[in-house]
Every structure is written in C-alpha cells, then in structure tokens.
Design a protein around this nucleic acid. Structure first.
Lengths: 239, 239
DNA sequence: TTGTCGTGACGAACAGTGTTCTTCCATGGA
DNA sequence: TCCATGGAAGAACACTGTTCGTCACGACAA
C-alpha cells in the first residue's frame, strides 16, 4: 500500500519538504477525523477501519495512535464533527414545539447526509462530546422556554435524542439500496408468510410498508412533542 | 482447543458412541442457537464469535456453517429464540392501552434478561423471524382491537418496537456496571464541563441522570400510548 | 558546528474475527 | 460388501484493532 506511493521519493520532497514542516502534511488529529468522515461519506461505516484511514492519509494504521487513542474515540470524534453541522435554534417560547421539530429534522438530515453514520450515534448513548452536547443543550433550552417542568424536559431530551438516532439509523440501513426496492422486498416477503399465523401483518402489509417521504418520521415526532406538551405543562396551543 | 479433549479417545467412545448416533450429540441448528444464547447470557454479545460457539460445542467454527449460513443468521436465530419467551396478550378492546404497556414491559424484561442482546435487536430492523413477528402481530391485534385506524396501528407498531429496542439497548449498556455507578460517572462528568456553554445541562444534571427503576421507560411509554390513542381515534378512557 | 534528546512515523507482529476450501471419515442405502 | 453422500474439522485467507521496537527527523544545548 505505502510502497505504491513511496514517501521519500521525488515528487514528495519536491512538492512539500521546503518549509521546514515534516514531510507531507503533519498528520494532526483534525486531519485524521476529516479523513475518517470522508470515508464514512463515500464508503459507509463498515468500511471505516484504522488501516483504511491510514491509507487515506498515505500512512499506516499505527501512525494514527499518536493522535486518537483508539478507534472508539475516533468514531466519537467523527460523530462530533457531524453534529457540529447541525444549526441550532434561539429558543422562542411562543414557538417551542415547532422549534423542537425543526431541530429534530435538521439532526436527522445531517446524520442522513453522512451515509449510515447514525449507526455510531445509536451506540454513543449519552451526548458527551462538545457538539453533541450543544444540540442537547439547545434542545433543553427550547423545552424549558416552552414551559416544561425540569424533569419532563430532562426525560424529553433523552427521548427525543433516542428517537432521532434510532429512526435515522433505521432509515439509513434502508436507503442503502433504493428505498422503493426495499419496500418491494418486504412486501414480497409478507406475501410468503402464513396468513393464519399472521393475519394482521398480511392484511396490513401495505400500511406497514408505507414510506412516503418523511411521513413516518413526522408521525412519531407529532406524538412525542404533543405528549411532552401535555405531560410537562408546557405552553399548549392545541398541539 | 480440541486437542485438550480429543474426540476419538477413551471416554468419548465409552460414553456416547453405542446408540449408533454420530459421536457426541449430532450438532443441530437448535443446539448451536442454544449454545450461542448461553454465551450471550454469560459473557455478552461481544463474546459471541463463531469460534466461541464452536468451542462451547466441543468443535470448530467451520462445523457450524453446515447449519447456519453465516453469523448474521445465527444472531437472528438467537434473537428469535429470546423473542419466543415473550408472553403474548389476548386482545381485549376495553384494556388495550394497558395491554400495550404490558407487552412492551415484558419485551423489555425478556431482552434485559439476556444481557446486551438488545444490541442485536436494534440492528435487526424489521421483524422478520417467526417469534419476532408473533410479537408484532400481537401488538397490531391489540392496537386494532383498541379501535386505532389501520395506518396509525401500522406506524404505531413500528414506533413501539423502535422504542423498546432502543431504550432496552441503552439500559443494557448502562447496567454493565452498577447502574448507580454509571449515574455517578455521568454526574461527575457534568461537573467538569463549562457552565457558560452548557448552562442547562449543568443546572439540570440531577434531573438528567435521574434513574429510579423504570420511571424513564414508563415516561416514554405513557407518551407513546396516549399519543397513539389520540392520533388514531382509539377508545380513549381519558388516557 | 556538533551532539543529544524526544517525539512522531511506521513496519512488523499479535491475537483476534468471519468465512471458505479441502480433506476425511462415518454413516445409510444399494 | 461397497459406494456415495454429507457432516465434521483443520488449515488457510483476508481482514480487524492494537502494541512494540526501531528509526529518522527537528529542535535545542554546548
């Protein structure tokens, strides 16, 4: 792998060596995380390995460990970089429910924008990296501004985060192939299962596989936000 | 590994060879799945490897592939075996909301009874194995008996399944160590983050980490069931 | 200028993983 | 009795994350 593009060769020295910096670019934590995210974007989470990241930076896997500790930490950093793309809301008590929904949709869109990165999000339970915590902080501020009591807001942010990551992960696994193609496969499968054992599933097959744009996501979103409003004594403009 | 307990040796022949069956027990799909579940129960999902299962049955990993295809299929079978433990409900229109909750709690309890098996459940998106579909079928029957319209029931069973698996997976990762210990760790961490950047998180730390028995789970459960009732025109005894 | 020191780079290796190939042998049927 | 079939199993392949020991380079001291 490295022998295909030798580092101490002609072009390498000619191009980059002069300024006194190390050969090539100096391989920082930041460059590693960016390379990793690039791999996730183009090849998916399963392709993300330490060797693959090393290759992306024209080096080996071992070199990365001077900057990241281990793979889990690298994945956390990649996820955090993605979270930094999520635009936050300035809490407006009058429109808190719509703000929650917007923030949720935006989180979903950002995650979906990076292939199946949501797989990492569903594993990373509690937000603990800076930008993940920014999102949680923002959500809490919106919920509290909406008038929800402390405990409801606390449980709420957890519930909403759970919903976003789980539902997005689900969606990302399905859009690996065409979404319609997946729907057809499931429908075909439902046609093969015994009707007497699964009368509901077989008779409701089309409803179960229905998947117009974000309808499914919005369905749960409505329920959650309305539920939080009722539960926590928030400002409730008829939901 | 096998050389530690040679198969064609004394005790092996003496004990088991006579009945005309193959040496030892005949290594069926069922025995493999049971062994795998046993490993998950005692050592967790991360310890579940083909070689480990082979070892559990005094054989090698290669021998398993005559019965299971690949590891993914094996995990599906293990998960399905666990799902078979979930006791179902005979739909009662008058008590559908409580029935939904009972089924959810039981699913959660069964999954939690097998260490972090929920990790497999969160990956296995749509129920497609027999017993997983039994649970889905039962849930659909309950929702429909409760008067929910078809599409709400269809989205609902998906949403409820998502909630169960995601929340159970979350819980299983936390109870790896003591639950209180985990809470303390998070609380301690929240004490180190900058207050000016995370005013909400820092001030609400105790509410965020609150974790009395199943309160957190019940919180989301109430919201979801009540939301489905309102959304789908179900029998609504004041939720 | 010379010498030393420390740190990042990195090839090799270790202990795993899922999976496949090929051999082998015991069994059931002819 | 002989043969064919299929399960068992060791070895091997291509991976994985991670560690170790070496090595070379840049910076700083004499």
């Amino acid at each position: 792998m490295t022998s295909a593009a030798p580092r101490s060769s002609w072009s390498g020295q000619w191009q980059e060596k002069e300024k006194g910096g190390s050969r090539r670019q100096p391989l920082t934590r930041e460059r590693i995380v960016e390379a990793a995210l690039r791999i996730v974007d183009t090849e998916g989470m399963d392709a993300l390995s330490m060797r693959r990241v090393g290759q992306e930076l024209d080096t080996g896997a071992a070199s990365l460990y001077a900057h990241v500790g281990n793979k889990e930490e690298l994945v956390d950093l990649v996820l955090d970089l993605a979270y930094s793309e999520i635009e936050l809301e300035r809490p407006d008590p009058a429109a808190w429910q719509e703000q929650v929904k917007r923030l949720m949709r935006r989180s979903r869109d950002v995650l979906l924008g990076h292939r199946d990165l949501a797989k990492a999000a569903v594993v990373a339970n509690v937000p603990r990296t800076p930008h993940a915590m920014d999102v949680a902080e923002n959500m809490l501020a919106i919920l509290r501004a909406g008038g929800l009591d402390e405990q409801t807001a606390a449980y709420g942010v957890d519930l909403l985060g759970l919903y976003t990551t789980a539902t997005t992960f689900e969606a990302s696994t399905r859009s690996g192939g065409n979404s319609q193609e997946f729907t057809d496969q499931v429908l075909a499968y439902f046609g093969t299962i015994p009707v007497d054992r699964y009368p509901m599933i077989t008779s409701m097959a089309v409803a179960l596989t229905r998947n117009v744009w974000g309808e499914r996501f919005e369905f749960g979103l409505d329920i959650l936000v309305a539920g939080l409003a009722r539960q926590g004594g928030g400002t409730d403009p008829a939901a």
